[in-house]
Deep mutational scan, measured.
Amino acid sequence: MTVRVDGVDYEFSSLEEAVRFALKMAKSKGAEVQLHNGTFHVE
């Protein structure tokens, strides 16, 4: 599972870890999280 934040990809071994990271980053940026074909994008 890959989480992309500001064009940088972060790899996670589990969906749970990836979701937690994506939500944490989105909250800190006041951004939204989108899921596309198994890849999260924080914008």
Score class of each variant (00 low, 15 high):
residue 1 M to T: 10
residue 1 M to E: 01
residue 1 M to R: 08
residue 1 M to P: 07
residue 1 M to V: 12
residue 1 M to K: 06
residue 2 T to A: 05
residue 2 T to D: 01
residue 3 V to M: 02
residue 3 V to S: 00
residue 4 R to Y: 05
residue 5 V to R: 01
residue 5 V to A: 02
residue 5 V to P: 00
residue 5 V to T: 01
residue 5 V to K: 01
residue 6 D to E: 06
residue 6 D to F: 09
residue 6 D to K: 03
residue 6 D to H: 05
residue 6 D to C: 14
residue 7 G to F: 03
residue 7 G to T: 01
residue 7 G to C: 15
residue 7 G to I: 02
residue 7 G to V: 01
residue 7 G to M: 04
residue 7 G to L: 02
residue 7 G to Y: 03
residue 8 V to T: 05
residue 8 V to E: 05
residue 8 V to A: 04
residue 8 V to L: 07
residue 9 D to W: 09
residue 9 D to G: 03
residue 9 D to N: 10
residue 11 E to M: 13
residue 12 F to D: 00
residue 12 F to W: 01
residue 12 F to I: 01
residue 13 S to Q: 08
residue 13 S to N: 09
residue 13 S to Y: 07
residue 14 S to V: 03
residue 14 S to T: 12
residue 15 L to I: 12
residue 15 L to C: 15
residue 15 L to Y: 14
residue 15 L to F: 12
residue 15 L to D: 01
residue 15 L to T: 08
residue 16 E to D: 09
residue 16 E to I: 11
residue 16 E to G: 06
residue 16 E to R: 09
residue 17 E to V: 03
residue 18 A to Y: 02
residue 18 A to M: 04
residue 18 A to E: 00
residue 18 A to T: 01
residue 18 A to P: 00
residue 18 A to G: 01
residue 20 R to S: 09
residue 20 R to Q: 11
residue 20 R to I: 09
residue 21 F to Q: 01
residue 22 A to G: 01
residue 22 A to L: 08
residue 22 A to Y: 07
residue 22 A to M: 07
residue 23 L to P: 04
residue 24 K to H: 12
residue 24 K to N: 10
residue 24 K to R: 09
residue 25 M to R: 02
residue 25 M to N: 02
residue 25 M to K: 02
residue 25 M to L: 06
residue 25 M to W: 07
residue 26 A to H: 04
residue 26 A to Y: 05
residue 26 A to P: 01
residue 27 K to L: 12
residue 27 K to W: 10
residue 28 S to L: 14
residue 28 S to W: 10
residue 28 S to M: 14
residue 28 S to Q: 14
residue 29 K to Y: 11
residue 29 K to A: 08
residue 29 K to Q: 10
residue 29 K to E: 08
residue 29 K to L: 14
residue 29 K to T: 12
residue 30 G to L: 07
residue 30 G to S: 06
residue 31 A to Y: 13
residue 31 A to F: 10
residue 31 A to K: 08
residue 32 E to R: 14
residue 32 E to G: 08
residue 32 E to I: 14
residue 33 V to A: 05
residue 33 V to K: 03
residue 33 V to I: 10
residue 33 V to N: 03
residue 34 Q to T: 14
residue 34 Q to N: 10
residue 34 Q to G: 06
residue 34 Q to D: 07
residue 34 Q to L: 12
residue 34 Q to M: 12
residue 35 L to T: 05
residue 35 L to V: 09
residue 36 H to V: 13
residue 36 H to P: 04
residue 36 H to N: 09
residue 37 N to K: 08
residue 37 N to A: 04
residue 37 N to G: 09
residue 37 N to S: 04
residue 39 T to C: 15
residue 39 T to I: 15
residue 40 F to K: 11
residue 40 F to Q: 13
residue 40 F to Y: 07
residue 41 H to M: 08
residue 41 H to I: 15
residue 41 H to N: 08
residue 42 V to E: 12
residue 42 V to M: 04
residue 43 E to F: 12
residue 43 E to W: 11
residue 43 E to Y: 12
residue 43 E to N: 10
residue 43 E to S: 12
